[in-house]
Amino acid sequence: MSETIRDSHARRYRILGDALAVAVYLFLLAPILVTIPMAFGSTNALSFPPTSYSLDLFRIFFSSPSWLEPLFQSIEVALGATMVVMLTGVPAGYWIARHEFVGKALITGIIMSPIVIPTVVTGLGLYLYFSYLRINSTTLSLVLGHVAYTLPYVILMIMAGVHKLDRNLEFGAELMGAGLIRMFLTVVVPQLVPSLVSAALFAFLLSFDEVIISWFLTGSNTVTLPVRMFSALEWEVSPVIAAVSTFLTAVSLVVCIVAIRLKKWTPVDA
């Protein structure tokens, strides 16, 4: 005897729904499913599935300066942007979450605006502003541009983390005599560790993958990996891009896995 009652009508709908869903999942994963095998293909053909397998494309990627230099530039920019955005965004997010001040709605609106403003607009604005400051085409301008771009996401994540904390802990610490900075470092920061780590990871990945703002801000000496890839795709589609794509996907995958694991992780049981 079956445990559940069979309803052939409902079952037919379920099977149809499952089939459609599988098709959409396949469509979503298609880019990854195509690029990864190709990355292990041969160096002279863009065919799928590859006729022979090798690590040649990765060897080209990791040995040619025209790809390696953008890779290091991207790492440098992403690390710098993550550092600056955390140093600014964490205290700012805490302050916005916990305090009322004059013009709060306006100020948070301005800080959050890069989320809704089309990225091209932000990119052009940063380009014009940095031209005015005469720091265009420098690594600094890229770092600052990425900070402006990632800041709202970091602040939102920190605010969400702070809202989950018990306000009495902070007030209690203050009553017991702790100053603001001491309280922040000993009470707020330790409890926020999961939010801090995921915000930093997210900021790093956003910056590392960012194309549009970098497209406006890079000079010939500060080309980032995504910009290098974008201009490569604009002109010729070479097989080595499959290896670069696989590398970018692997970075995303690592960040994705860490972020999912972090959700289950709490500072208390660690």
Binding site: Y25, L29, P31, L46, D209, C256
Partner: peptide, 21 residues
């Protein structure tokens, strides 16, 4: 994960893949 992985995948990777597909 099947939704989040594409969410985290670079837009450039997708464009490259679709030129191939």
């Amino acid at each position: 994960v099947l939704v989040l992985l594409p969410f985290w995948t670079s837009i450039l990777v997708k464009c490259f893949a679709f030129t191939i597909i």
